[in-house]
Design a protein around this nucleic acid. Sequence first.
DNA 1: TGTACATCAGTGAACGCGCGTTCACTGATGTAC
DNA 2: TGTACATCAGTGAACGCGCGTTCACTGATGTAC
Lengths: 234, 234
Amino acid sequence: MVTPRERARERTMAEIRALAWKQVEELGAPALSLRAIARDLGVVSSAIYRYVASRDDLLTALLVEGFSDLAEAADAAEAAVPADAYRERWLAICRAMRAWALERPAAWGLLYGGPVPGYFAPQQETSPPGTRVLLRLAAAILEAKAAGRLEPKVGPAAGISQVSPQQRLALEAISADRGVPVDAELVALGILGWTAVLGVISSEVFEQLGPDGAPAVALLADIQFESIADAVGF
Amino acid sequence: MVTPRERARERTMAEIRALAWKQVEELGAPALSLRAIARDLGVVSSAIYRYVASRDDLLTALLVEGFSDLAEAADAAEAAVPADAYRERWLAICRAMRAWALERPAAWGLLYGGPVPGYFAPQQETSPPGTRVLLRLAAAILEAKAAGRLEPKVGPAAGISQVSPQQRLALEAISADRGVPVDAELVALGILGWTAVLGVISSEVFEQLGPDGAPAVALLADIQFESIADAVGF
DNA sequence: TGTACATCAGTGAACGCGCGTTCACTGATGTAC
DNA sequence: TGTACATCAGTGAACGCGCGTTCACTGATGTAC
């Protein structure tokens, strides 16, 4: 049974998160202020502490919510593609990530930009939602490989270079931690794809090519995703 | 003729920049504080204004200095490699960038992380030093191409996909702005390499794969650069 | 070489602002008998 | 159904802190005659 009080509390908490996101969007994560949220909420500054233990606490909640929201958008986009269209699944996730990032640039900055000064994310809370998208991308690669529909074009997976025994150990530990043993070559390929995709999106969102490069980068995003897909071997 | 006063002034300005970098390293760019610099300098807070017009001014100076320092490190690394070893030149720049970023993570964050809240970089000042490294990487690609030693493996340059007329216009405008007309396919390839390299380095510096992924990412950096070089076609 | 004047680094006080967090409190909403 | 008590949202004042920036000033260093 949900009491009116509980409903009111839930509504207020949702409003706090919404106002916090608005602040992050407008001024960036480092500028997030509990007092400002209280002001926007029309409430005295100390009242916030009925809902949030501390500023760090709220940042953690935003991080978790942000990662989850992004993952949901990616999942939805992937679900709209046939399961055996591996390349398209992978591309759909990339495009969904980019669309989400462009819609909420500061949120993207919070998740994948530099660290927020003075704040240290508690990994045990942020890590599971933080790796969801990465795991979906990895699944597309693994399933394509299992179906014999993957021909990597670069790196050790393509036989061009080789992983050292030391690298093999570290790489296979990553997948083993998650219960699915995978070739080191394939893990390296997956990480390459992931970091490249992050780079493409961050470059656009953070305008890292300067004002003259910006329009081209926007037009180019899709070509870049396709090129990375080529490299991965879809 | 350099007067003692001028020398003292120069020394103080250098010390201010050094203290500012120390602050950025320790607390991140958004936390940069003129008062704290004055304190560290052993001087009253208002005295800073004899040397720096405002906080934004100092941030701009740091940005310019950071980009320049990074570019110098990259240039030095490239110069140690024979001019016709295109792939090695390109890799040397990547490795120098990564080494610089690991040595000064917060500086990397200032240059290539999200924006500093409330600060807008004046593009006409930061753009020239900001594009130096990118242009060196581009030069390696162009020279390899001119020497007939480039076989791109992905994207339009490899003939796998195609650029639309609209994309071609935007892409060729970028290189034309710099006086060297280049094929749209090659510009796209260069930007892909650039964004992928930024992604690889930022992923490691910002620890975007979580604590379990970190050691592998470090071991993997070089493989990733090699793989990107493969994709570009060196 | 000595003196009058200009330049400039640094002082100290102040303005007005915002921040996170604590604490004792009021008063309304819920719960148990 | 009515009353006593517990829960809890929100208040208001305060603590102690840091920030960027301005302003009139002192006193040492440099420059021109």
